[in-house]
Design a protein around this nucleic acid. Structure first.
Length: 605
DNA sequence: GACGGAACAG
DNA sequence: CTGTTCCGTC
């Protein structure tokens, strides 16, 4: 299963971002390092070693030379290169392994998360051949906090927790450079990613290819049954991916599957749990009136949410990332992820679970569902060139572009339909992260403590989950703490992912597979009531949000000036970050439900 | 060797 | 912005 060309992964060219971001125009050092790391031929000069994500530069000068060659900087030397590397510390892309010469460690949380979605993580393809040892022991996987100023730098929108965010954001903007210099790896990428795609795709692959990273792993997974859902290999199934791969490839065996492996503990809590969902009364027709489980109501209800989300929770940037993604065909609603096929047990009393049903037939394997991607809200230079250039070529690339809102025409969709699905989103995430640092930490700790089982020693098993360090922003643990959490093969992770830091007595029941067992109906109901509560909270939250913002941004002119480019307020008040856990949980559920519904509703597409 | 400030380049 | 180049410090 390795990719034909198999040099592992490559970064899509959208990552290049030729036009903007001067600094990212070319390959970035970390990409380059990764590139070397995955090629056997360079194992003499640089190789994975030690902890997960840790690598040692065996021949500094050679690496420098190679780097210099790549960048056309003949004068490059290790001293300079290392300076560049050091800059990554603050970005939390890398950190130094103290005490070991020439040894650094990647923060795969960000890198992988951000970059791998476009790669075939699902099949382990596209993963570096050589990879760092699987996590060994720590339960933590966080980066030492960067300075607050760094992390919360105004440039980062104040909300950026860290690299993860910044990288992701950059990605969204297309500025993250890809690892290739544009000459060497695109093909790889296509082969690796696109190539396999054609065959039978695993859902995750499809998702990844199609969606924005965050969207893909979080919302999508949740929407599609989360762990163990579609097409996932049976639990216990092999952990695939490169055994050595540092990238937590999807391969979580079993239910923890994509989610577990892909998501980082932190991340897991962010998107869903943080989902700052704040209902918008005006947009929620049903709120306050009546609610029934009849499909129409549900639909409206959810649509209202969508709207609400759209209007209040997504910033323009978010749109850029999730340009009206319409998920027409569900693959499989989250409700029945693990029991889908045999749904009879507890088939959720969903009114229109029909779509569900039919899919059940085809079940397991996922059809890569198609997304309708629509043009981003607006503005932004058209990066048609890139889109067109790759458009048809590789599915993955195409998807990537699509994800970036570049493929608007491909699916000539009329009026932009706004179906913002899984809201998990990006921006909100970020905001949340910042304001919720303390909670994040708690969550993380929680996660680490409870959910994360100590990584298996390098057993060549699946790499594990990538943690989202970005979310870790503030805390500081020293590097020893920075261990990769191993994705428990089975998925102890999931619970937290789905349940979002499920509190012992409170989270939704989780099935063994990590799937929620609550019937859809029930969930909706729950959501319903929560929404009502939330409404009440709405204002307060907003206020809080502002407060927080004020504190952080201080003089920054807030949003009074709603973006001039009518793209919608980039910072929506409701994006609130500080949503109480309960709300967050609810939000995530909403997301799930929404996704489901939306999927069903669009089944026709 | 590692770190990080500072100036500067693209 | 992402580096690159220098350089002083530990």
């Amino acid at each position: 299963m390795k990719t034909p060309g198999d040099t592992g992964f490559a970064f899509p060219d959208w990552a290049y971002k030729p036009e903007s971001s001067p600094g990212s125009r070319q390959i970035q050092l970390w990409c380059f390092i990764l590139e070397l790391l995955r090629k056997e031929e360079y194992h003499e000069v640089i190789a994975w070693q030690g902890d997960y994500g840790e690598f040692v530069i065996k021949d500094p000068e050679e690496v420098a030379r190679l780097w210099g060659a790549r960048k056309c900087k003949p004068q490059m030397n290790y001293d300079k290169l290392s300076r560049a590397l050091r800059y990554y510390y603050n970005k939390r892309i890398l950190h130094k392994t103290k005490g070991k010469r020439f040894t650094y460690k990647f923060n795969f949380n960000k890198l992988v998360l951000v970059n791998y979605p476009f790669i075939d993580m699902g099949s382990g393809r596209g993963v570096p051949q050589s990879a760092p040892p699987v996590p060994t022991g720590g339960s933590h996987f966080r980066f030492p906090p960067s300075t607050p100023s760094e992390v919360l730098s105004p440039n980062e929108d104040l909300r950026s927790p860290g690299v993860f965010s910044s990288v992701a954001r950059r990605m969204g903007r297309g500025s993250v450079s890809d690892c290739s210099d544009g000459t060497s790896t695109n093909s790889e990428l296509e082969e690796g990613v696109g190539g396999e795609d054609r065959g039978g795709v695993g859902p995750e692959r499809a998702f990844r290819g199609l969606l924005h990273p965050r969207l893909s792993h979080d919302s999508l997974f949740r929407a599609y049954g989360g762990p163990g859902g579609l097409g996932r290999p049976p639990p216990g199934h092999r952990v695939h991916g490169d055994p050595m791969s540092p990238f937590p490839v999807s391969p979580l065996p079993g239910p923890g599957g994509l989610l577990g492996s892909t998501l980082s503990p932190a991340l897991s809590m962010t998107p869903g749990s943080h989902l700052p969902y704040t209902p918008s009364p005006s947009l929620s027709p049903m709120l306050g009136s009546h609610f029934s489980f009849n499909p129409d109501d549900m639909k409206r209800y959810l649509q209202a949410h969508h709207q609400s989300v759209y209007n209040y929770h997504l910033s323009p940037r978010a749109f850029f990332h999730y340009p009206n993604i319409v998920v027409p065909q569900p693959h499989r609603p989250s409700a029945a992820p693990d029991k889908p096929i045999t749904a009879h047990h507890h088939a959720p009393p969903m009114p229109h679970s029909h779509s569900l049903h039919h899919h059940q037939g085809e079940e397991q394997h996922p059809s890569p569902f198609k997304f309708k991607l629509q043009p981003p809200p607006l503005g932004r230079k058209q990066r048609d060139c890139s889109a067109s250039s790759t458009g048809g070529s590789s599915s993955s690339l195409g998807s990537s572009y699509a994800a970036l809102g570049l493929l608007s025409n491909s699916s000539s969709v009329g009026p932009p339909k706004i179906k913002v699905e899984p809201v998990s989103d990006i921006e909100s995430d970020e905001e949340v992260e910042v304001t919720d640092i303390s909670e994040e930490d708690e969550l993380l700790d929680d996660y680490e403590g409870d959910v994360f089982t100590p990584p298996h020693p390098t057993n060549g098993t699946a790499p594990t989950a990538i943690t989202n360090l970005g979310a870790i922003a503030a805390d500081d643990l020293d590097e020893d703490v920075f261990k990769t959490p191993a994705a428990p093969p089975m998925g102890p992770l999931t619970p937290s992912l789905l349940g979002l830091k499920s509190e012992p007595g409170q989270g939704p029941p989780i099935s063994p597979g990590g799937t929620l067992c609550i019937p859809l109906k029930l969930r909706f109901k729950r959501r319903w009531s929560e929404d009502q509560k939330m409404e009440a909270y709405g204002e307060r939250e907003e206020a809080e949000d502002k407060k927080v913002r004020a504190e952080k941004e201080v003089v920054e002119e807030p949003a009074r000036r709603e973006s001039e480019n009518g793209e919608g307020p980039r910072r929506s008040p409701s994006m609130s970050l500080g949503a109480p856990p309960a709300q967050r949980r609810a939000s995530s559920e909403l997301q799930r439900a929404t996704a489901q519904l939306s999927l069903e509703n669009h089944g026709a597409c």
